[in-house]
Design a binder for these strands. Sequence first.
DNA 1: CGTCAGGTTGATTAGGATCAACACAGGTGG
DNA 2: CCACCTGTGTTGATCCTAATCAACCTGACG
Lengths: 244, 244
Amino acid sequence: MQLPNVSGDRCAACPIRHRAVCATCDDTELAALEKIKYYRSYTPGQPIMWRGDPMDYVASVVVGTARLERTLEDGRKQMVGLLLPSDFIGRPGREVISHDVTAVTDVTLCCFRRKPFERMLNDTPHLSQRLMEMALDELDAARDWMLLLGRKTAREKIASLLLLIHKRSDRPDNLGHQSSAEIELPLTREDMSNYLGLTLETVSRQFSKLKKEGLIVLEGNRTVMIPDPEALRLEAEIDDVAIE
Amino acid sequence: MQLPNVSGDRCAACPIRHRAVCATCDDTELAALEKIKYYRSYTPGQPIMWRGDPMDYVASVVVGTARLERTLEDGRKQMVGLLLPSDFIGRPGREVISHDVTAVTDVTLCCFRRKPFERMLNDTPHLSQRLMEMALDELDAARDWMLLLGRKTAREKIASLLLLIHKRSDRPDNLGHQSSAEIELPLTREDMSNYLGLTLETVSRQFSKLKKEGLIVLEGNRTVMIPDPEALRLEAEIDDVAIE
DNA sequence: CGTCAGGTTGATTAGGATCAACACAGGTGG
DNA sequence: CCACCTGTGTTGATCCTAATCAACCTGACG
């Protein structure tokens, strides 16, 4: 996979400039951030942070997909977040990392050492307000996911996940409702099962069933065509009061 | 139930002064907040906010317990948060309420009309930083709960809930590990089932089983004695890396 | 005294987990 | 070039946990 050449680039040219934690920073603030930022890259499967380790830096995802997860002693795993470009990693004000983070695809992070970043947070309201906004958005998303984990059936979970990935892989040509859509799954069946609170066998079976019913069309293992997104939406029991 | 006389009180005397969104405000900021605040009270079961309604105000819980929940069309319910004193309700910057909020016990809120509060957020870094902190804490809590919903057994869920309530009803005499503890459940079996992603029958059965095994002692329906919190902790599969 | 909300317990069912076999593609090394 | 391995995915058989359906209990309250 060819990575965009981000290292050393000016923030102004950054692909996530207008969505990440720095979105509302002005030129002066951006210059200050630029001084303390550095890039890191990871290959698929590579750990990025471990729960319990000291949190030396925080970061924005620039390119790629990562998963945020927790593991029980006996090995049961639950993904608690899917990190896509512009998502923020880490919790300023905390000494220790609370969730494992792992690269799913090739990933490039824009990192800030925690201490300098915390100092900037303190005297850059634009930054703390943006981070507050992002945290509140993620909180809403986490709560929606709690509804899925606690109450939805396997079939509804799969449909919801497909629609979530569809929505978040927002290509620019996304004007209103399309009559069909194609999405690229960054996750393996196992990753998906860990996100949905299922086993990988159940995920596989539900894929097969949705395929047989014509609600999805598989092109290879990772590419899913959704002939009629509205029909899939009915299966997902999603309800957007024009909120999300 | 006798409510503390909070209405009209000065913030300085407020029971949640040092934990709520206003915790880090100085006297001047507090005075400004005092001008736009007002109190509201609710009786058990009374709705506080409805998903989809315009968000006219945001609030802090001063006294009592409320639940935050989402409902599927067919009636399936999932609690997505338990709101205790000092917790914040609402999302500045959003026009519409995204979760239902209902009083569980008698509840007193300290409310702020949203617009003035948003203006204050903009020019009061103490406030936005505190709200950011609280949102990030809640995000961590929500993610812990996702692990519970997705991967824990009914028995583990119940044990986790009891320990959560024990931890959050932090009486001052809470110096380190106690050899036994008594907690007061604000929730009905049904509320608990909605929080844990179970049915109320399953909750009831697991209570009976834990009782039979001596891990808990019921005194009436709502009071639970935990003879050996460490033993219960082993059942809950909780793992705190000195994080929480 | 009857009603009703909250709670317990029992019988049965079902959705998903578990255990297991196999398919297939992509490397790797002889 | 082929044999082999490994990671990923599919499908089948069986089991088990928690859901469902149902009866009943208790205490509060008009």
